[in-house]
Amino acid sequence: MDVIVKTRRGFEKIAASHIGEVLGPGAEVEPAPFGYLGIVFVKAPGSDKWALAQLIAQKVPEADRVLVVEKLVPADPAEIEKAAVEVAKRYINPDDTFAIRTTRRGSHTFSSIDINVRVGAAVKEVTGANVDLEEPTKPLYVEIFQDTAAVCIPATGEYRKLRRDKPLALGYLRKVALGQFVYEGDEEAVRKMGERIGRAVQTFEVGELVILLHKPIPARTLRLFAEAVEEGIESRYQIQTRSYGRPVWKVPVHVYELYQWVRDRAGEPLIVTDPKGDYVTHAKERLAELFKSGRVNVLIGAREGVPTGVFRFASLVIDLIPEVTIATDFVVPALAIGLISALEEAGTLPRYLGKRKKK
């Protein structure tokens, strides 16, 4: 093989077909070699394999990652180390950072981590470069298929959720205590709206959700809404705990009467969302000041707007999207994104500095 293409599982044949069309009849394209999903082997005798890789990267969106094979050796740690050192000598400079990315397919007496550690130590010794597992300037890939190992250089970049200098929002979202009016309507609408609101507040992991009674409502409506909110929170929380590589905050839910809640939170920042307020990014400096507090209370209506008498007790009234009345189930996402955008513009959010580089 000259090039290894990684694609989404189940897309191997589609990717292979597209690659064959792009490269022409001289190319040999094999989807799911050895039955391994998400892989396409490409070989084009007599062609420049780097030119092939670049063409695939430019023309084939199904190709998530394109790797140029520099060495093929038996799947033995000593052979892999030797091959990786040869490739690294011409690929990695002393002022670069690198990481070894090993994927192992088949049964072996060693693990992927074993290869990463052994090869990483050898490459560091011969190049003098530092290891950076998060954002290496020169990653080196070891792709193992049963008895064969391919040492590869990527022709496509790496994408990561959290990169250095990216703003961190979670700590500020955790300061938010949302006051949400009860949604009224037929039972099915109340249930669906409650579940969507619950999923939204859990998605952003806000500090607290307070269901507010701003007028007499049927007890059944309150019960349905509160139960649906908690079901939405639980549903999203279960997904987060399975997929996140960090602890997840489960949003607590309380019930309070609107005016008593406003009195109870006297002395704390209170933000009201209403079209009559200032556009959220125009109030960014004031928002930055308010978020210096330990808890920031944010009031959201439902069908009915927030009573204007409460405005006098608010630290700030903000409009999330001028000229648009936001549907109740979209307010929490719009609010979270608007607040974080404004705080970022104000230069308030801390930055991700990355894990410490290995020397």
Rank of each mutant, 00 (worst) to 15 (best):
M1A: 12
V5Q: 05
R9W: 05
A16I: 04
H18C: 02
I19W: 02
I19Y: 01
G24C: 12
G24Q: 12
G26C: 09
V29N: 04
V40R: 05
A44M: 14
K49P: 15
K49F: 00
Q54M: 13
L55S: 15
L55C: 14
Q58L: 11
K59D: 10
D64F: 09
V68N: 09
V73D: 06
V73M: 04
P77L: 14
I80G: 02
A83S: 11
A84N: 08
A84E: 04
V87A: 08
D96H: 05
I100M: 06
T102W: 06
R105P: 00
T109Y: 00
F110E: 05
I115A: 00
A121T: 13
A122R: 04
T127Y: 13
G128I: 09
N130C: 06
F145V: 08
I153A: 11
I153V: 15
P154M: 06
G157S: 11
R164P: 09
V176N: 01
F181D: 05
E188W: 01
V190A: 01
K192N: 01
M193H: 03
I197Y: 00
V206T: 05
E208H: 15
I217W: 03
I217L: 15
P218D: 14
A219R: 02
T221E: 10
R223G: 08
L224W: 06
E230Y: 07
Y237W: 00
S243M: 15
S243W: 13
P252E: 11
V253M: 14
E257D: 14
Y259F: 13
V262N: 08
R263C: 09
L270P: 02
L270Q: 03
I271W: 02
T273E: 02
P275S: 10
V280A: 04
K284T: 06
K284V: 08
E285W: 07
V298N: 05
L299R: 03
G305A: 12
T308Y: 08
V310Q: 03
R312Q: 14
S315I: 04
L316T: 04
D319E: 14
I321A: 14
I321Q: 11
E323V: 13
V324T: 13
I326M: 03
T328H: 09
V332P: 01
A342H: 06
T348Q: 02
L349A: 06
R351W: 03
R351V: 12
K355Q: 11
K358M: 11
